[in-house]
Design a protein around this nucleic acid. Structure first.
Lengths: 336, 336
DNA sequence: CTGTTAGCGCCTTCAT
DNA sequence: ATGAAGGCGCTAACAG
C-alpha cells in the first residue's frame, strides 16, 4: 500500500499539495497537478479514507438497522437507502438485528464510535443501550415505517397507516363483508395501533363489530400467516374477510385457507399490506396496499443527511403516499 | 464526543494506560483499571475506531457486492454473511451493484482505500477496474455461487450446479418427460454452463434431444420467467417440462402458464432452483433445488477472513451440498 | 500556488 | 505497572 508520501517523492512536492490536487484540483497548478496524477498512477496510490476520516471527523457512512432481512419489503427500502446513500457519497453498513436489543445496541454504537455518521432504523425500538442514552442525544437518526419510542422525538418516514387501512376496510365493506379477521404483526408498535385503528374506524361507521378473538398473530412472517389463518378458520365465528398486516402473512394465510379446501376470494377474501413483488404473482394475486418502499429508503437518507449536515429539518414526519391495489384475492362476500 | 484525553484527565493516568485498560486489561493494575472505567463512564467515552484503524491498518469490515438486492436468495446469503461477520467482529458494507461495472469498481475500491479488509462478491465479474488490477492482486476476495473470472484464481463458495441439474433432469425424466424447455439466467456465467451441462448430460444418456430454440431467458427475474414461458408456449415444439434457473423465474413462468389456461403440473411441469422461502407457498408448491444460502454466506466469511489473517487456504473451492425438493409443480408427463 | 507545521485520536515501543 | 514520545496517513491553517 503506498501512502501519500511515496507520491510526494515521485512528484517532488509536499503532502499538502498532493492532498489538494485530490480534493481541490483547481487550487493547484495544472503542470504540478499532472505530475502528481502521474505519480499517483505510478505509485498505485489510493488515499486511506480512514485516515482522512480521523481528521475530518466524518466517516461518510450510515448504519442501517433491520429487524428482519428476510422481509422483501425491508429489502426494497434498503435498496432505496443504498442508492441514495451512494449518490451522496455515503456507504451503508448493514445491521441485521433480528429485533434483538443487544444487537441493536452494538450496531447503534457504531455511530458513537465514529464508524458511522448517522443511523436509519427500520424498527420502533430506541436502538441505544441505557448506558449510551446520554451520548445518543445528538445522533443523526431517522426511523422508517415505525416511530422510535424515546423521550426525544426523532424524525420518521412513514405511511399513513390509518388511512391505508381505512381504504382496505372500505374496499372490503363495499363487497358486503361484515365479519372480519385480522392477522397482525408485532402488537406493541405504533403501526399496529394505527392500522387497527383505521380498520375499526370504518367498521364503527358501518356499525360492524370486530370480535377481539378474531385479531390474531404477532409476527410478520409467512408462518404467522398460516397459524393465524388456522386459528381464524377454527373460530366458531369464522370471518369472511381477513386483513393481513403484511404480504408475507397474507401469503401464508392464503396457503393455509386453500389447504382447508376453501377458495380465495370465493369463500374468504384476503388482503395484504406492502405490495412486495411476489404478491402480484401468487394465486390469486393479492389485494394490498402499495407502499413506496424504495422512495421511503431514499427519503430516510435525505432526512438523516440533513441532520448530519446540521440543516434544520423542515419537518420531523415525512408521510409518503400509498395506493390501494385491488387484485383478485378480495371479492364479494360469500352467500352462505 | 469525548476523547481518550478526557478520560486521562479524569482518571489521572496517561493515554497509554487507558488504551491498555481497554485492550489488555490484565496489563494494568486492578485499582487503576477501576478508576479508568469509572472515568470512561463519566466522560461518556467511546474509542474512535477509525483512529485505531489508521494505526492498526485494519478496518474490521467487509464489503459485500450484490448484483441484485431484490433476489431473496442473495438475501439469505447476506444474512449468513452478516451473522458470521458480526460474530468475528467485522461489519458489513453493502454494495448493490446492479451488475454495473462502474459500481462494482467503486465498491471494490473500498478495499484499496482501507475502508474494508476484504471483499465478498456474489457475481462472476472481476470487480476491480483495469486501473486497480495491479493493486488488487493481494486483496482478500471470495465469490459466492459464481466464479470470478480473472487471471489469478480467487476462492469460491459454490454448489455443484452440474449435479444439481442432473438431479432435476433425472427427476423429470423419471416422470416420462421427453420434451424440455429451459428458462435460464445470464448466459455468460459459469453457472449457466454448469447447469445446462448437467441437464444435457442426462438428456444425452436418455437419448433425448434438447431443442436449442427451447433454451430462452437471460435474466434472473419474475418478469423473465413470464416472458420465457410465453416464448416456450408459443413454440410449435412446446415442452412438457420447463427448467427455470431460479425460483423467481419459475414463479413468473407458472403465473404465465396459468394465464394461458394451462395447469401445472398436469399440462406442464416446472422446476426451479434456490428454494427461496416463498417457493413452498405458491400454487403449486415448487419443485426445486435447495441451496444452503445461509451456510454459503457463513462459509464465504470464513474463507475471506482466512485470507485476511494470512492463513493459507485449505482449498480454493468450497462446495456445499444441495437437496432436491420434490414438491407439486412437477409430475407425470401429460398424455396428449 | 506551494511548503511548513501542527494536529485528528489512538497505539506502541521504550524507558522507568 | 505506568508514562513519555513518536508516528499511523491525512488535512488544514498559516506563511510565504
Amino acid at each position: 500500500m503506498s501512502t501519500i508520501k511515496k507520491v510526494c517523492q515521485l512528484a517532488g512536492v509536499s503532502t499538502a499539495t498532493v492532498s489538494r490536487a485530490l480534493k481541490n484540483p483547481d487550487m493547484v497548478n495544472v503542470k504540478t497537478r499532472e505530475r502528481i496524477f502521474k505519480a499517483i498512477a505510478e505509485a498505485g496510490y489510493r488515499p486511506n479514507v480512514l485516515a482522512s476520516s480521523v481528521k475530518t471527523g466524518r466517516s461518510n457512512s450510515l448504519v442501517v438497522l433491520v429487524p428482519n432481512l428476510s422481509n422483501p419489503f425491508f429489502l426494497k427500502i434498503i435498496q432505496g437507502i443504498e442508492q441514495a446513500a451512494q449518490e451522496s457519497g455515503y456507504s451503508v453498513l448493514l445491521g441485521d438485528t433480528q429485533g434483538d436489543p443487544a444487537r441493536e445496541h452494538e450496531y447503534a454504537g457504531m455511530v458513537l464510535s465514529n464508524r458511522a455518521d448517522g443511523l436509519i432504523h427500520l424498527d420502533h425500538s430506541f436502538p441505544f443501550s441505557k448506558n449510551d442514552e446520554r451520548l445518543a442525544e445528538n445522533v443523526a437518526m431517522v426511523s422508517v415505517c415505525e416511530r422510535i419510542v424515546a423521550d426525544k422525538k426523532y424524525p420518521v418516514v412513514e405511511l399513513d397507516n390509518y388511512s391505508a387501512c381505512r381504504a382496505l376496510a372500505n374496499h372490503l365493506v363495499s363487497y358486503g363483508h361484515q365479519n372480519f379477521g385480522v392477522i397482525c404483526g408485532q402488537k406493541e408498535s405504533q403501526i399496529y395501533r394505527d392500522r387497527l385503528g383505521g380498520i375499526k374506524s370504518v367498521l364503527t361507521e358501518e356499525a360492524i363489530e370486530l370480535d377481539d378473538s378474531l385479531v390474531v398473530g404477532g409476527e410478520y412472517s409467512i408462518e404467522a400467516g398460516e397459524t393465524g389463518a388456522r386459528e381464524l378458520l377454527a373460530n366458531p365465528n369464522r370471518p369472511t374477510a381477513i386483513f393481513c398486516f403484511n404480504d408475507d402473512i397474507a401469503i401464508g394465510a392464503i396457503h393455509e385457507i386453500k389447504k382447508h379446501g376453501l377458495r380465495v376470494p370465493d369463500d374468504i377474501s384476503v388482503v395484504g399490506f406492502d405490495n412486495i413483488k411476489v404478491s402480484g404473482y401468487i394465486d390469486p394475486p393479492l389485494t394490498t396496499i402499495d407502499q413506496p418502499a424504495y422512495e421511503m429508503g431514499r427519503t430516510a437518507v435525505e432526512v438523516v443527511l440533513q441532520q448530519i449536515k446540521n440543516k434544520t429539518l423542515l419537518r420531523d414526519r415525512e408521510i409518503l403516499p400509498f395506493r390501494l391495489l385491488e387484485r383478485a384475492s378480495s371479492g364479494q362476500v360469500a352467500t352462505r
